[in-house]
Design a protein around this nucleic acid. Structure first.
Lengths: 220, 220
DNA sequence: GAATGTGAAGGTTTTCACAGCA
DNA sequence: TGCTGTGAAAACCTTCACATTC
């Protein structure tokens, strides 16, 4: 939808903020708000109005001077940019502690991320049912990923085996991987890999408590 | 431990990278590696050697010219900086989908984050046992948080009620909060609030697949 | 010789400030 | 008048390059 690839590189932070705007616009839409200003968006996300306008301006002019942005329309456009205007076929590997939580995580479905397959290597788990999905044997990973046209793989296996798993995932032709294992995975250049490190923010808090406690908090 | 508050502000990214270094150093320590160079650290984290050296230099000179950094010692020092050289008393609020996963998340304990209390408002859950902890009634939140000297609160309740909960948490004098609810929470300036948004990275992948697919991946 | 520690340079991101439009 | 869209300025972060030390 967006053809700005030649213009200027869009920063990771901008994309992350688009996620925030999208979520906020969904709320505003439910509240039947028709328009919203960069000032209001900024206040609710603890950003500056200029930041909001810059972010949006990378992708086009969505607003009306003097008025602001049309809520539903802007939400729709950001949805397009983020690829949330379509359904994604997702496979989950590892249905332990974290994996189980992800299967039931409503936000994923809401945004079009549909977990179609679940894999594990534990015989006790294989064949069991998680929210209507039967856990498959990791042995059939490559075949199943291809046959089911999976587009995104979520890895929630122990750190020790994550690299072997990811190697197989790459072999199956997957180009987008979300990794929850606390380890650095190597993937070829043409594969998008993102890491979800759940300890990181907790560590930031602990750092903040120990070091920056001058009576002032910090958000993001 | 660190008294650099006057020098230069340390960026959020630097702190996040310290988390990565810490994790990597733990691995190297287990492998009985004695020293490590900024070059090697950088390669394994996909950063530049200069970045690694700059990050560390904010906190002191930990290395030896010509040799590199002593693995165990550096790990210990970063642990101190991040506040991982001590135990933290953590309370979890909401033992649903995500909450349950966090109770069993080994990484937290390993880093000294001990979940001491669990709260919920669901009568069916109150009194039940999660990994040895009996779920308490959210009604007694303030009293329990104070009596148990809780330092960090993790919020894993539905978005609709998260603000009410966080207000009570703040009233109880808590200064550090990790929020998993997909909503922007308001807290006073002197409270540290961090958000863990599990959809964000998935949305980044979806953005990448739709927009940046010029055959090149991106990691972080 | 090898690798740190660090000012200075370079690059990127954010904020400012204002022209332009409803 | 109010608020967007955007060049320019400012702030911030990363990389370079080299003096310094082991």
């Amino acid at each position: 939808m967006i053809s700005e690839s030649s213009k200027r590189r869009i920063s990771e932070s901008t994309i992350h903020r688009l996620s925030l705007y999208y979520r906020l616009l969904s709320v505003l839409e439910k509240e039947s708000k028709e328009t919203v200003s960069s000032k209001e968006l900024a206040e609710r996300e603890k950003l500056t109005p200029a930041q909001v306008r810059k972010d949006l301006s990378f992708f086009g002019s969505f607003g009306t001077r003097g008025l602001g942005y049309p809520v539903s329309e802007l939400k729709r456009r950001i949805g397009e940019i983020l690829g949330l205007d379509r359904q994604w076929s997702v496979a989950l590997i590892g249905v332990g502690n974290i994996g189980s939580a992800l299967v039931g995580y409503k936000e994923f479905q809401r945004q079009g991320f549909n977990i179609k397959l679940i894999f594990d290597n534990d015989q006790r788990k294989i064949g069991s049912n998680h929210k209507g999905i039967v856990v498959a044997d990791i042995k059939n990973l490559e075949k199943e990923l291809r046959e089911n046209k999976i587009e995104i793989v979520v890895i929630a296996v122990p750190a020790t085996v994550a690299q072997y798993i990811v190697d197989d995932v790459v072999k199956a032709g997957i180009k987008a991987i979300l990794n929850f294992a606390p380890v650095n995975l190597k993937v070829p250049e043409d594969v998008f890999l993102r890491n979800e490190n759940m300890s990181m923010e907790l560590e930031y808090l602990s750092f903040a408590l120990v070091n920056l406690f001058n009576g002032r908090g910090t958000n993001r």
